[in-house]
Amino acid sequence: MVAAFPSEHDVSGKLHSHHVEDPGSFVAAVEQASEERGLRLTPLRKEVLELVAAAGRPVKAYDLLDQLRERHGNAAPPTVYRALDFLLEQGFIHKLESINAYVSCHHPAEAHQVPFLICDNCASAQEVCDARVAELIEAQARSFGFRPQAQTLEVHGLCKHCRKG
């Protein structure tokens, strides 16, 4: 069990709000990472990525579908889910399982698993970029003879803005 998240916002323990200040720069970083990895970021994948980045908070697949239908009229759920699956597999976005929503990843060029702090009032999400948390969970799992394949750690509560209200 992790007693506390780091209070310092340094390289080993950064908190990132999932409001991307510059969605264009984020998309450019994903395009660069895709090119370096030899991946094909199709126009639809890019558009879904842009919508996730522009949302500034966790966004559900059907909200993305509604936005695509406003633009194209004929978007279907499998189309959106295929794009999301690709973006997830490549680590460009994260899925918040407990609220069934997606957020952009603040480090799209590197594969990593991170915990999230999710506000139950405003649905904001903060990525906790601290490798120690993932390493601790993995070490504990191995000590029990368990071989972890993926981690999803989501901590629910109230963000500082909602606590003030």
Rank of each mutant, 00 (worst) to 15 (best):
V20N: 03
H161C: 15
L88V: 06
A109P: 07
Y62C: 07
G73L: 01
E21A: 12
H16T: 05
V11T: 15
E89M: 15
V133P: 01
T79S: 13
E36D: 11
D130S: 14
A125V: 06
C119R: 03
Q90C: 08
Q140A: 12
F86I: 04
Q113M: 13
L88S: 05
V103F: 03
V103C: 06
F146V: 13
E21G: 15
L136K: 11
G145M: 05
A101W: 03
I93P: 00
H94C: 10
A101F: 01
A28L: 07
A134I: 00
N100Q: 10
V128S: 00
E138M: 11
R71F: 05
L158E: 08
F5I: 10
H94L: 09
P6W: 00
H106S: 10
A55Y: 01
R163W: 04
E97F: 13
Y62N: 08
D63W: 08
Y81D: 08
R163K: 12
Y81K: 08
H16F: 09
T79M: 12
R45F: 02
L153A: 05
G91H: 03
E21L: 15
Q67K: 05
H161E: 15
E110P: 03
S143D: 03
A123F: 14
V80Q: 00
Q113R: 11
D130K: 07
A83D: 01
L41C: 02
E47T: 06
D85W: 09
V27S: 00
L88R: 06
S124K: 08
A141I: 00
E89R: 14
A28N: 07
A123L: 12
L49E: 00
F5N: 04
L44C: 05
S7M: 12
F146N: 09
L136S: 15
R40Q: 15
A28I: 04
D22K: 07
S104T: 07
F116R: 00
C119A: 05
C129Y: 06
L117N: 07
E36H: 08
A55M: 02
V20L: 10
R82D: 12
A61T: 00
K14D: 12
C122S: 04
H107K: 12
I118C: 08
G91T: 01
K14Q: 15
A61I: 00
P148R: 03
L44A: 09
S17V: 13
G145V: 03
K160H: 15
D85G: 11
A4K: 09
F5R: 06
L49T: 01
S25D: 14
S98L: 10
C122W: 05
A111S: 13
S12W: 11
F5Y: 09
S104D: 08
P6G: 04
L84C: 06
H112V: 04
Y62M: 10
G56T: 07
P78L: 03
L88Q: 06
L51H: 02
V2H: 07
Q140K: 14
Q90S: 12
A101H: 02
R37S: 13
R57N: 07
A150N: 09
G157H: 05
I118P: 06
A55F: 01
H9G: 14
K14W: 14
T79Q: 12
H94S: 11
C119T: 01
D10Y: 05
A131V: 10
